[in-house]
Write a protein that binds this DNA or RNA. Structure first.
Lengths: 141, 141
DNA sequence: TGATACTTGACTATTTTAGTCGGGTATATA
DNA sequence: TATATACCCGACTAAAATAGTCAAGTATCA
């Protein structure tokens, strides 16, 4: 079980963005330099964030990205969802003969993965971008 | 973020084992048939479980595996640890220039992943094999 | 009109996953 | 003692996912 870089980068980039977008849009180039993330990869990630209306883009010189909502309203769930960083546990395919079919001893652990998924998603639903920024400022003092 | 089959299989197999090992050892062949998991793959998994002293092996005809501890004492943490199903979030390599080096805006999200890791591990540390079996019996009624 | 910066889609090397395969060794039972 | 059962061990591999790269755009500001 692991968190992939895509999700990590998305969160890092958005925290970075949230701290600098007071007046002007923030370019991916700047984020790329500050966070050490490949520009091309960032473009892929922000394309997804834009489609899910987490950020807005401003084209042209002095362009960049701006948050599309208040940092308080952007939850980790939304970010991970946007970049396809899902919490996958069991996939109970109805077509498959093996695995979960609701019969006999199979899928003994079905409920476990459900619980786990809820447990993790619960964490993600509570945390907002604002929380992350505040947390960071506090520890910085 | 996903849970891989290895961890899933390990838990499924152990729940199966725990329910059948009252008197005799349980063979991987039986578990394989009941749970629909490849025998060869199960052998790999049980080799690891044995090395971490979660199960004991009995060789020869009528052989198989037996739990090495009480189901109550085997936590999910132990199982996942045995089969290398780790909860990985950030790796802050000291060697790398990029990523987490404790400076400036980098690793803004460091604490987040720590928290997440604790949150998940907390779940795994509480759940025992016994819990899973009980849970299953209850829902079966 | 040129530089900046977003936009899009295709391509690719690397790593991880989920096995398979081929050889063993130990032991109960006939 | 022969044999079948079942654990034991290491090497190999196909397929999928990951983490990018690359190329060719379009919009906008100065």
């Amino acid at each position: 079980m692991k968190l992939t870089s895509k999700g990590r980068y998305a969160v890092m980039a958005l925290v970075d963005l949230a701290r600098f977008d007071n007046i002007n849009p923030v370019s991916l180039r700047d984020i790329s330099l500050r966070q050490g993330i490949s520009l091309d990869y960032l473009e892929q990630i922000f394309s997804k964030l834009r489609k899910k209306e987490i950020v807005q883009s401003v084209r042209g010189t002095q362009g960049g990205y701006v948050l599309n909502k208040k940092a308080k309203e952007i939850k980790l769930t939304n970010i991970f969802d946007a970049v396809d960083e899902k919490v996958k546990t069991v996939q109970c395919k109805k077509e498959s003969k093996k695995g979960c079919n609701g019969k006999s001893t199979k899928c003994l652990t079905h409920n476990l993965w459900d619980e786990l998924e809820n447990h993790i998603n619960n964490f993600f639903e509570k945390k907002s971008l604002e929380d992350l920024i505040k947390d960071n400022v506090e520890r910085r003092i």
